[in-house]
Design a protein around this nucleic acid. Structure first.
Lengths: 225, 225
DNA sequence: AGAGTCTTGATTATGTGTAATCCATGTGAG
DNA sequence: CTCACATGGATTACACATAATCAAGACTCT
């Protein structure tokens, strides 16, 4: 008799842990920043019991996405300008650090892969922000993915999710796209030239550029309402 | 009739959340690194039910002190040399960043406070590692405590707990103590001179020195068993 | 009357206990 | 060595008890 169940691809949602789904809803704005998170509402929303909800809330509290106050429940972490500035300040420290290891260790194949990804990015002219994010992730994954410092990678990953969600809400302008492409090209050039300092400088500039863009959009959004 | 209960100071332990107690036991080594964390054992140990234990485990998982694997339970995060190197690499990035804001904003009173704390540190000649840690914390609290970047502060705080626990297990040697004092003096001097770059450099060196010391002790410990 | 304080009730978080199910691992038969 | 099975423990669900918080109304004193 067939022991392996195959009717599961109809419900692959069960595979992703609850706190991951909730985190997605937080960064996507489905659970608005600052809003109250009541266990029973969430239990209904995700069709689970309140026990898993409580555990997910504690997990997200540890990760910093949720603020727990004793006997007063949970609220979604505020994603305001100050928060964006904070995480980009940290990105601007960590990304140059991460790339320094890659420079000098980069193989021909890896550099070729970066070039290929970058060409695909530049070939995209439509407003497919999701595809752009995937490619951008792949690009940086080549440079950071093999770094030994899993702590730093975890921090960058956490912050990256927030940045991703904001990028979805505020797509890059054509001007920003051009700047991004130029920065990517300069990153590749610095790596090919095995110039650590140049690579670190460009990567920092890359992060600062993204920060500037997002802050402008946030401010405009706040001004309009 | 007296409606206000007054027998509460006998049990103030309830005030500290479970995950804080567990975190303390993890960093102090009472719950050894890498060891299995069974919910029922922990429930007995802390005299609570399984639910709070699970919530604490999820919180600590989010903070990175505990590794959860689905249906396989929880283990204490390994505190090996690689981990120490990782977190000190991050400290060496964050601490210079944090202090740069303080330089130039430091008031006379704050500098005087740093000097006073440092004098107290140098007056300590006994092996009172706990007192030393408290004073060292106070010293750096003056410089970092008011920084706007609460994210960076949270990261430093988390890592600081691990460092603290290791420092308890491996007290600073007299040579290291002397180096620490000299570094503190140089930090004060750089701040008094409003020299951002110098302060950042010394702080980074300070972190690297602590890292070197701990790594040596860890290696010696591992060699002996 | 008006300002401040107290009581009360609804809501929700927090903790305990129990049961059912699922999964990973170890064991033993073949 | 391989596979079925047994078992320990995690995971989820549910029911209930306690306790903290908040808001609205009642009450008191000036």
């Amino acid at each position: 008799m067939p022991g392996h169940p195959q009717a599961e691809d109809t419900e692959p949602a069960e595979a992703t842990p609850l706190h991951v789904r909730m985190r997605g809803d937080i960064v996507s704005g489905a659970l608005p920043a600052g809003s109250r998170l009541k266990t029973q509402d969430l239990a209904r929303r995700y069709d689970v019991s309140i026990n898993p909800v409580r555990e997910a809330l504690h997990q997200l509290s540890g990760e910093g996405f949720v603020i727990l106050s004793r006997n007063r429940g949970a609220r979604v972490r505020m994603l305001d300008e100050a928060f964006v500035r904070n995480i980009f300040d940290i990105r601007a420290l960590i990304e140059p650090y991460l790339i320094r290891l890659f420079v000098g260790h980069a193989s021909r194949e890896e550099i070729a892969r970066m070039v290929a990804i970058q060409e695909e990015i530049e070939a995209l002219d439509g407003p497919d922000q999701v595809r752009l994010d995937v490619l951008d992730d792949a690009f940086h994954q080549v440079t950071y993915g093999n770094h030994f410092n899993s702590e730093a990678l975890a921090i960058r990953e956490r912050h990256g999710q927030v940045v991703h969600a904001l990028a979805l809400r505020y797509p890059a302008s054509p001007a920003r796209r051009r700047a991004q492409n130029e920065e990517h090209r300069r990153i590749i050039a610095a790596i090919a030239a095995a110039d650590e300092n140049a690579a670190a400088a460009v990567v920092e500039e890359h992060a600062r550029g993204a920060e500037r863009h997002l802050l402008e959009q946030l401010r405009r959004d706040r001004a309009n309402g």
